[in-house]
Simulated assay, not measured.
Amino acid sequence: MNNESPAPPATGAITPLQQMVASCSGAILTSLFVTPLDVVKIRLQAQKNPFPKGEMNLHCVD
């Protein structure tokens, strides 16, 4: 049996609180930026004919 104690955490190691904050902020950023783009992609894929005759229907307001 090895009776050595575990090594102390290295200087600059990430604490569990820092890990929790990092993962929560990553999830929030994902939901704010990636999810809306995914919704647009799915809606475009669900359309039968998104751009008839190869034209894009862009409506510009001047």
Rank of each mutant, 00 (worst) to 15 (best):
V40T: 05
S25D: 06
Q45C: 06
L37A: 11
V39Q: 07
G26R: 03
L29M: 08
A10S: 12
T15I: 05
P6H: 07
V21G: 02
L32R: 02
L44N: 07
K41S: 15
P9H: 08
Q18H: 06
I14Q: 15
I42A: 14
L29H: 09
S23G: 04
Q45N: 13
C24N: 15
L17P: 00
P6F: 04
K41H: 05
R43H: 10
V39C: 02
Q19I: 12
E4K: 10
D38M: 13
M20R: 11
T15L: 06
S23D: 10
G12H: 06
P50C: 01
I14A: 09
A22H: 05
G12F: 01
I42C: 07
I28G: 01
I14W: 06
A22T: 13
V34C: 02
A7I: 14
Q18P: 01
Q19T: 15
I14Y: 06
L32F: 07
S5I: 14
V40M: 06
L17R: 11
Q19M: 08
P36T: 02
P8C: 03
A13G: 07
T30K: 10
G26A: 13
L44Q: 11
P6G: 03
Q47L: 12
A10G: 11
I14H: 02
A13Y: 09
S25M: 15
N2I: 03
N49S: 05
G26S: 14
T30D: 04
I42V: 15
T30I: 09
A27M: 04
P36F: 00
A7N: 10
M20P: 00
A46M: 09
Q45L: 12
G12S: 07
K48T: 07
P16Q: 02
T11H: 09
T35I: 14
N49G: 00
Q19W: 15
N3R: 07
S23L: 08
P9G: 01
T30Y: 10
A46E: 10
T30P: 00
D38H: 12
N2M: 06
L32K: 03
F33G: 06
T30F: 13
C24S: 14
F33M: 13
T30C: 08
P16K: 02
T15R: 07
L17F: 15
P8N: 08
L17K: 15
T30S: 07
S5K: 13
G26Y: 01
P50D: 00
N3E: 14
S5F: 13
A7E: 09
E4I: 15
P8Y: 04
T11E: 15
L17S: 14
V21M: 06
L17W: 13
T35Y: 07
I28F: 11
N2D: 14
V40I: 15
F33L: 14
L44I: 11
K48I: 01
D38E: 15
P36H: 03
L37W: 02
S25T: 05
R43W: 09
I42L: 13
Q47T: 05
L44G: 09
L29P: 00
P16L: 01
V34H: 04
K41A: 15
V21E: 09
L17N: 02
G26W: 08
I28H: 00
I28Y: 09
I28E: 01
M20I: 05
P50Q: 00
L32H: 03
C24I: 06
P36N: 03
I14C: 13
D38I: 05
Q47R: 13
L29R: 15
T35N: 03
Q18S: 11
P9E: 05
L32Q: 02
D38G: 12
T11D: 13
P8S: 12
A10T: 12
A46G: 04
T35Q: 08
N49E: 11
